[in-house]
């Protein structure tokens, strides 16, 4: 059994139990052990980096130190957490000067960043530890009539120089993993563009306009649902549709699913055990298409 330190982050436990439930259930079922470590904190995502990049890097490094102490690689569910931690990990491994500076800061908290561990998004675990073949073998439901508009979220792919996750302009890993489950991943315009999630709270109008583009483009392309990897994208697109209704009087009813939910469903886990009631846009239409 492969073990990872699970980095849960803030948004998932605070807002999206269905993400956590489906991810824990599906990954455990596929033989991945998730270890919850004490004393982890916020990953220092863009809002913190905006305040002070150096503080952001130090926080990320601090969390990686905890995993280094436990001798575990990190797995994240949230794309945002993945970016913050993986980026810091790469920067500090590459840049000795920066590493020295951050370690000087960390020493006050009794930590030292070594650079001995890796930070992975759970898609990488599915791809490399489980593997498409075993994944396919474990699929017990038929998703073949489902047309999925995938949206990985920006921070899974970019900045690619540091994250090295996938081809930033022609990504395929996520879409392949959707198709491995039997569903069809479709093209839609401006697929790689941001959902605007990070602008929520500062410029809600702009954020909503961006989310709306996504919903409009995926609807136009005839998607049955959007599948995301990030709680922030999820929130922006799911809750966003409620706001679109009140602001623009537009109703799309485009179901938004976490990939882990789609995975759990494909593996045959009972939908009633997945806390799907927390979705704002109901997902019955999707469940109906899963045979």
């Amino acid at each position: 059994m492969t073990s990872y330190a699970l980095f849960l982050g803030c948004t998932i436990p605070a807002r999206q139990p269905s993400y956590e439930v489906s991810a824990r259930r599906a990954l455990t079922k596929l033989g991945i052990e998730l270890v919850d470590l004490a004393n982890m904190t916020c990953c220092a995502p863009p809002p913190v980096q905006s305040l002070d990049l150096e503080t952001g890097l130090s926080i990320a490094a601090y969390n990686i130190c905890l995993a280094e102490e436990a001798d575990l690689n990190i797995v994240t569910l949230c794309t945002g957490c993945f970016e913050s931690l993986a980026m810091a990990n790469a920067m500090l491994k590459e840049n000795e000067k920066l590493k020295a500076r951050v370690n000087q800061i960390l020493s006050n908290a009794g930590k030292e960043f070594e650079g001995s561990k890796e930070v992975k998004h759970y898609l990488q675990v599915l791809l490399n530890d489980v593997g498409p073949n075993r994944l396919k073998e474990n699929v017990s439901k038929n998703l073949s009539s489902l047309k999925v508009a995938s949206f990985s979220g920006c921070h899974l792919l970019r900045p690619s120089a540091l994250l090295k996750f996938d081809d930033p302009e022609k990504p395929y890993i996520f879409d392949d993993l959707i198709e491995t489950l039997g569903a069809k991943s479709i093209w839609y315009r401006h697929k790689l563009k941001c959902c605007g999630g990070l602008l929520r709270g500062y410029a809600d109008d702009v954020a909503l306009a961006l989310a709306r583009e996504k919903i409009v483009n995926t609807t136009k392309a005839g998607a049955d649902c959007i599948v995301t990897l990030c709680p922030f994208c999820f929130l922006t697109l799911d809750l966003g549709q409620v706001l679109m209704k009140s602001t623009f009087h537009e109703e799309y009813n485009m179901p938004v699913l976490h990939y882990s939910e789609l995975l759990a469903l494909a593996l045959g886990i009972d939908p009633t055990e997945l806390a799907l009631q927390f979705h704002k846009i109901k997902v019955y239409s999707v469940l109906n298409k899963i045979g």
Partner: peptide
């Protein structure tokens, strides 16, 4: 400067 959504599309 506060309207950038840090998506890194540009930087790529």
């Amino acid at each position: 400067i506060w309207l950038c959504c840090s998506c890194y599309n540009c930087q790529e």
